[in-house]
Design a protein around this nucleic acid. Structure first.
Lengths: 251, 251
DNA sequence: CAGAGTGTCCGATATAATCGGACAAGGCCC
DNA sequence: GGGCCTTGTCCGATTATATCGGACACTCTG
């Protein structure tokens, strides 16, 4: 691991919705580096477009990140194949649809379509990350990972509690994942937010591997009314996308 | 400039729509580095999420770029203030609206709304970059930059020709920019693509500085029919956004 | 089964990131 | 307005670190 790159990674990690702007000194303090080294690092990142220097000599994230992000999304065929299917699903149910992949220990939203109902679920945006153990998407992605990978993720990320329904016992989670794999879908019954339910299903590529998951998010009162129908819609969509990606597995 | 960061920048620049996947050796050849050093660099970037290692040990861009990009967009108040105004404009004219900032030598799309007419303009996506000298957005952004900055940009990026209307003479461009600044808007009369016209206007922030530009893209036949109306719409929108950002300048 | 291709790992060397300090510029209070 | 505090930037010596060539394991191909 190159230390300079590591430092750059830590530096970029400082930027979030609540801390959009940083000065050299603040970063130096946070990263426990000399102010001069920090300046070298930040100036370099700014020159390359990863950071943006304001008039007051403070720093924000740079537009090159947007360009790179768009390149990634444009070249991910998963997204290209999934999007029209997601649109069909959104049209049919008028609920919020998400597409996610597993990245390190968490699920990352890769695409999203918002429902148009009056009461709708709207929490997250593209690129947002979710704990895997308490989201339907995350649990599906875990269910198709190796047991040692799941254990590694639990080890690193833990199983923090968000609601009274969150699964916090490793053994219970592992049992749950086996069931999900057998069924081919996962529920999130208010495990991350009260009043929010989701159902997710796995997307396979041409090698048969599960590379992503698709989900529908629905307010609890609406979800419990027609759970089976939502589930079948999501599973049908997941299978359609898998086929488009060259998967010819079961059914 | 830290060399390691510089190398990381060059490496990430290799990834585009036509080259979404790279192996260690290919990158080493391209960057004229030893394969082992290249491996160290790529492995580090991958560990931090900036690259994604495929099963076949090749590398793609990593999802963390999407997360960072979203953070940037979410924390840019320009975008927050501009979006609703862009929506109004899109509703009224049903044409494609762009929001862009100047990044280094080029204009970068920061937000976009697509028109819903049958024949519409659809070339670019969020984060895409445009030469400044041949787009309405770019010319507006240049017009409010210092002359030395404009000269620097011409020096580095050049004035490549795309259509017979493209301005390729530095002196002519500089004269054009003075006029644009005086008028408060810029046209792109098929200077980058035949049959595509645009009109753009500057967005000021609370310090009076021009920090962005907004544009409307219209097929040439439609544009020439009601040029003045399109122009006034865009200029009105630009002024509304500027006011929202705290600008109390002229009119 | 041999060969050429790949990515990965290792240890010595020389380069490059680091640090402390000095400087300049801006804001603020008395 | 002058002094004081803060900020970011620059510089040169030192030490830590990225670099390189080579060896290895692996996969695919002929």
């Amino acid at each position: 691991m190159l230390q300079t790159i590591q430092k750059a990674g830590e530096l970029l990690a400082l930027f979030d919705r609540d801390h959009a702007e940083w000065g050299v000194r603040e970063v130096a303090a946070q990263l426990k580096m000399a102010k001069s080294s920090t300046h070298d690092l930040m100036a370099s990142l700014a020159k390359l477009g990863f950071l943006n220097k304001t008039e007051e000599n403070r720093y924000r994230l740079g537009w090159r990140l947007v360009t790179l992000s768009e390149t990634l999304l444009a070249t991910t065929e998963l997204r290209k194949e999934a999007h029209p299917v997601m649109e069909d699903l959104a049209t049919q149910y008028q609920e919020t649809i998400h597409l996610a992949v597993l990245d390190d220990t968490q699920a990352v939203y890769v695409d999203k379509l918002e429902g148009r109902q009056a009461v709708r679920v709207e929490l997250t945006s593209l690129g947002a990350r979710l704990y895997a153990h308490c989201s339907a998407l995350g649990k599906v992605l875990l269910a198709y990972s190796s047991e040692q990978e799941v254990k590694r993720i639990i080890q690193i990320a833990g199983l923090p509690r968000f609601t009274e329904n969150t699964i916090t016992d490793p053994e219970e989670l592992l049992q749950n994942l086996i069931k999900i794999r057998k069924q081919g879908f996962a529920y999130d019954m208010e495990e991350i937010l009260p009043d929010l339910c989701c159902v997710a299903a796995p997307i396979h590529n041409y090698t048969g591997q599960v590379i992503a998951a698709i989900s529908m998010s629905i307010p609890a009162y609406r979800f419990k009314r027609s759970q089976t129908e939502f589930r079948e819609g999501v599973m049908r969509a997941a299978k359609t996308i898998s086929k488009r990606l060259g998967y010819y597995g079961s059914s």
